Lab assay of single mutants.
Amino acid sequence: NQASVVANQLIPINTALTLAMMRSEVVTPVGIPAEDIPRLVSMQVNRAVPLGTTLMPDMVKGYA
């Protein structure tokens, strides 16, 4: 099963992502692949992401 990127904390809108904000977890539906975590660092979210939410490509500016 593919691990996805999950929010490790509440991430406010327009926040630049850091490693501490993300974790890898096997979830359904599948979100951004966990191997993309290094690429996500310093990218901004375009909405508030609650703790435990799977990051989807449309939630991260410049990812999709």
Results as ranks from 00 to 15, higher is better:
Ile37Thr: 05
Val27Tyr: 02
Leu19Tyr: 15
Val41His: 05
Pro38Ala: 10
Leu40Pro: 00
Arg23Tyr: 07
Glu25Asn: 07
Arg47His: 05
Ala7Ile: 08
Glu25Thr: 11
Leu10Gln: 09
Val30Asn: 15
Met56Ala: 15
Ala48Gly: 15
Pro33Trp: 12
Met43Thr: 05
Lys61Ala: 13
Val60Cys: 02
Pro29Met: 06
Ile11Gln: 00
Val5Cys: 03
Val26Asp: 08
Arg23Gln: 10
Ser24Trp: 08
Leu17Gly: 01
Asn14Phe: 05
Ser4Cys: 04
Met22Ala: 00
Asp58Tyr: 06
Thr15Leu: 05
Ile32Ser: 00
Pro38Gly: 15
Val26Gln: 08
Gln9Phe: 04
Gln9His: 09
Val5Pro: 02
Thr28Trp: 13
Ile13Trp: 06
Ser24Asp: 11
Val60Met: 06
Asn46His: 09
Pro12Glu: 08
Met43His: 11
Thr54Gly: 03
Ala20Met: 09
Asp36Arg: 10
Asn46Tyr: 07
Ser42Asn: 15
Ala20Thr: 13
Thr18Lys: 13
Thr15Cys: 04
Pro29Trp: 04
Arg47Cys: 04
Val5Asn: 00
Arg39Trp: 06
Pro57Gln: 08
Val41Ile: 15
Ala20Ser: 14
Arg47Lys: 13
Val49Lys: 00
Ile32Pro: 01
Ala48Pro: 05
Thr54Leu: 09
Gln2Glu: 08
Pro29Val: 07
Pro33Phe: 07
Gln44Asp: 06
Gly52Ala: 07
Gln9Ser: 13
Met21Ile: 04
Val27Gly: 04
Pro38Tyr: 09
Asn8Phe: 04
Lys61Asp: 08
Pro50Met: 15
Val5Gln: 00
Arg23His: 06
Thr53Glu: 10
Met22Pro: 00
Ala48Leu: 12
Val49Glu: 02
Leu51Pro: 15
Pro38Leu: 15
Thr15Ala: 09
Leu10Phe: 10
Leu17Ser: 00
Ala64Pro: 12
Ala34His: 10
Pro50Thr: 05
Met21Phe: 11
Asp58Met: 11
Pro29Ala: 05
Gln2Tyr: 11
Leu19Ala: 14
Met56Asn: 10
Leu19Asp: 12
Glu35Gly: 13
Glu35Thr: 15
Asp36Tyr: 10
Arg47Leu: 15
Pro29Leu: 05
Ala16Gly: 13
Ile11Phe: 02
Asn1Glu: 15
Val6Lys: 05
Thr18Ile: 06
Val6Arg: 04
Met21Glu: 02
Val45Ala: 06
Pro38Cys: 03
Glu35Asn: 07
Pro29Gln: 05
Val60Glu: 00
Val30Lys: 12
Val27Trp: 03
Arg39Ile: 12
Leu51Val: 15
Leu10Thr: 11
Asn1Cys: 03
Gly62Leu: 08
Arg47Ile: 14
Pro57Ile: 07
Gln2Ser: 13
Ala7Leu: 04
Asn1Lys: 12
Leu19Cys: 04
Gly62Met: 07
Gln2Trp: 11
Val30Ala: 15
Gly31Pro: 00
Thr28Asp: 08
Ala48Cys: 03
Arg39Tyr: 10
Pro38Asn: 15
Asp58Glu: 10
Ala34Gly: 05
Glu35Ala: 15
Asp36Glu: 14
Ser24Met: 10
Pro12Asn: 11
Leu19Met: 11
Ile13Met: 10
Asn8Pro: 02
Arg47Tyr: 14
Ser42Asp: 14
Leu55Lys: 00
Ile13Arg: 08
Asp58Gln: 11
Arg47Pro: 02
Asn1Asp: 07
Leu55Phe: 07
Ile13Gln: 13
Tyr63Phe: 12
Gln44Met: 13
Leu19Lys: 12
Lys61Cys: 03
Gly62Tyr: 15
Pro38Phe: 12
Gly31Arg: 02
Pro12Asp: 06
Thr54Pro: 12
Pro12Cys: 03
Leu55Trp: 00
Leu17Asn: 01
Ser24Glu: 13
Pro50Tyr: 07
Thr28Met: 08
Val30Met: 12
Val27Thr: 14
Leu17Ile: 11
